[in-house]
């Protein structure tokens, strides 16, 4: 009947892990804003932020202070409780995804055996934040942004799940650690090589799920003023941006874990270049994640935005058949490997 002995110790260790992960990820999210402004500036032949600190390195801190001291406006037409709750929903469900992601073979906050499904579930729940923010603002632009995001995320979750089904079938497990281990043991070393179709589908869906360009229709600034964040100001707007950047990191981590072998390197690469083995595993994962974050920013600087009917027809007419094709191909490959 008594509480088990190691319970308090386990809780303490878990809290410590949460603090470490949260600290690192929040710092990264803050500096991704800086990196984005710098890189887009360089691509458009500008300098980007230069004023605060050397090369503008203290710009995120200045931004944070500015957002915290701004007045927090709640419109008269708004549903107050939902209006105040919606940004928190976005942030909470983005952060919760981090708890099941392993950063090292022996370091993850929760070792769940349904890791991929948990991430899909929380990504689906995070949509409510955006839709409710659009509804509760009591403004036409916000409502249109919320409706667009509902339709977009509902139709892009299907190819996302279908392309992940190929990965799960290949690894025979939902656990992210097992998925990485199965890639390291396989002939190709990475999941990208046998299922390049699935990877392309997943990458496009990751852009759409995080509301990034070229699929940032919910906050298209040329048609709707700022979409669902039109009425938000001060730190509530900051929370929305933080949630968006954290979900970008989650998607980048998921891509590099499911398709690029996570912290392992393919065998053919290590036999070709033996000195590459000394790189510690976490650094490999971090380099892959940085590459995908750079890809997110790069695409934002170069691609124009899609129209809404184009967005829908891409999902239903192109991505879903491609994902199904990829799934059939993986099933065939698995059958050949087993017999």
């Amino acid at each position: 009947m008594a509480l088990s002995e190691g319970l308090f110790w386990a809780i303490f260790v878990t809290l410590l892990k949460i603090a470490v992960v949260l600290g690192i990820v929040l710092l990264h999210a803050a500096y991704t804003v800086y990196a984005e402004r710098k890189i887009i500036g360089r691509m458009q032949a500008r300098l980007g932020p230069m004023e605060v600190g050397p090369y503008g390195l203290l710009q995120p801190i200045a931004d944070l202070v500015k957002l915290l001291f701004k007045e927090d406006i709640i419109p008269q037409e708004a549903h107050k409780v939902i209006f105040q709750m919606a940004p928190l929903l976005v942030l909470v469900f983005a952060i919760t995804n981090l708890s099941v992601i392993p950063f090292h073979p022996s370091f993850s906050i929760a070792d769940v055996n349904l890791g991929v499904l948990v991430i899909l579930a929380f990504a689906g729940l995070g949509t409510y934040g955006i839709i409710l923010a659009g509804y509760s603002s009591g403004s036409k632009y916000s409502l249109l942004g919320g409706l667009r995001s509902a339709a977009q995320i509902l139709s892009y979750e299907i190819p996302l799940g279908l392309s992940l089904a190929g990965v799960i079938l290949y690894a025979e497990s939902f656990r992210l650690q097992d998925i990485v281990a199965s890639q390291a043991n396989s002939l190709f070393g990475m999941n990208v090589i046998p299922q390049i179709l699935g990877f392309i589908v997943f990458l496009i869906c990751a852009f759409a799920e995080t509301n990034r360009a070229p699929f940032d229709l919910p906050e298209a600034e040329s048609e709707l003023v700022a979409g669902y964040i039109t009425e938000y100001s001060g730190f509530r707007m900051g929370i929305f941006f933080l949630g968006e950047y954290i979900s970008m990191y989650v998607m980048a981590l998921l891509i590099s874990l499911c398709y690029f072998g996570g912290w392992t390197l393919p065998i053919w690469l290590t036999t070709l270049l033996p000195f590459i083995k000394v790189i510690p595993p976490t650094l490999i994962l971090i380099l892959k994640v940085y590459f995908f974050i750079f890809l997110f920013i790069w695409v934002r600087a170069t691609f124009p935005r899609y129209r809404f009917d184009q967005l829908m027809s891409i999902s239903w007419k192109v991505l879903i058949p491609l994902a199904l094709l990829n799934f059939l191909w993986i099933a065939f490959l698995k059958w050949r490997m087993l017999t």
């Binding site: 839709i131 509804y135 409706l147 509902a150 509902l154």
Partner: peptide, 12 residues
């Protein structure tokens, strides 16, 4: 994630 979002969409 899916069915109730559809309902919310219809409500709007």
């Amino acid at each position: 994630g899916a069915v109730l979002i559809m309902f919310l969409f219809t409500l709007f």
